[in-house]
């Protein structure tokens, strides 16, 4: 069995909301993600996917529970966690006044990629993501498709073993979304452990090795597609999803 890279146990997050008061955004979530695996977090908007991923990436502090990335605790070793992690989301924009090359160099260096190998790594990323022509252009002048490529490149430039993609295809056109999915599949083949959140069923079905269904901050199910089908006697992921969010049944976790 592949190495467990991300381990989440009893993870919870409460916060104060002006209109709703105390909100339990995530409650007692458990899962793990292994090397070379894409674990999809599937849930409606506001289900708690982003909050969960933000806790794993150390942007937010858990209220209770633990999350470990390569054995490093997100609460007590946040720098080590971030060093081993690449985080991509719609709210992680790029610095508009830096060029693509400057951005990649900054992220490689600050994320502790060896200084002597940074230049060749940056050029490798530029080559891999087809940024050559635009590497010296400021981010603010790039098209949204090119920005997205630079974003993925900056997420992986320090070669982290764990990657988080939080609803990465939101706002992208079909071709750019397919490009992104292809890039994520390639990264899985490179042996990365990938957490991928989405509310698009076809995306989850196409990309994910296992799917964790989250609803109202709780993990309702976590298994591969066949396991979910067997547990619910439903074939289509949409039906499986509806089954869990309406019945709140929890099958055995793998």
């Amino acid at each position: 069995m592949s190495t467990v890279q991300v381990e989440v146990q009893g993870l919870s997050k409460n916060f104060f909301d002006q209109s709703r008061g105390e909100v339990n955004a995530v409650q007692q979530v458990d899962f793990e993600c292994r090397r070379g695996e894409i674990l999809g977090l599937l849930g409606a908007n506001g289900a708690g996917k982003t909050t969960t991923l933000r806790m794993i990436s150390t942007v937010l502090q858990p209220t209770s529970g633990t999350a470990r990335v390569l054995g490093h605790d997100v609460a007590s070793e946040p720098v080590e966690v971030r060093r081993n992690l690449g985080f991509y989301s719609a709210s992680t924009a790029l610095y508009p006044r830096l060029t693509a090359r400057e951005t990649l160099t900054l992220f490689a260096r600050v994320n502790k990629y060896p200084a002597e190998r940074t230049k060749s790594r940056v050029e490798e990323m530029i080559e891999r993501f087809g940024l050559g022509e635009y590497a010296g252009v400021r981010i603010e002048k790039l098209s949204s498709g090119m920005k997205q490529k630079v974003s993925i490149a900056r997420t992986v430039v320090h070669d982290p073993p764990v990657l988080i993609f939080d609803e990465p295809t939101v706002g992208l056109d079909v071709l750019n979304a397919l490009d992104l999915q292809k890039a994520i599949q390639e990264l899985r083949e490179d042996g990365k452990a990938i957490l991928f959140s989405t509310h698009i069923m076809s995306e989850a079905e196409r990309l994910c090795d296992r799917i964790a269904i989250i609803d109202k901050g709780r993990l309702r199910a976590c298994a591969d597609l066949e396991g979910l089908r067997a547990a619910t006697s439903r074939h289509y992921l949409e039906d499986i999803f509806v089954h869990y969010v309406t019945s709140h049944e929890t099958p055995d976790q793998d």
Binding site: V59, R82, S91, T92, V110
Partner: peptide
């Protein structure tokens, strides 16, 4: 406002 704060927050430094 530019949504780069969260990007900065994910850098591997304190």
């Amino acid at each position: 406002e530019r949504n780069t704060w969260e990007t900065t927050s994910t850098l591997a430094t304190r």
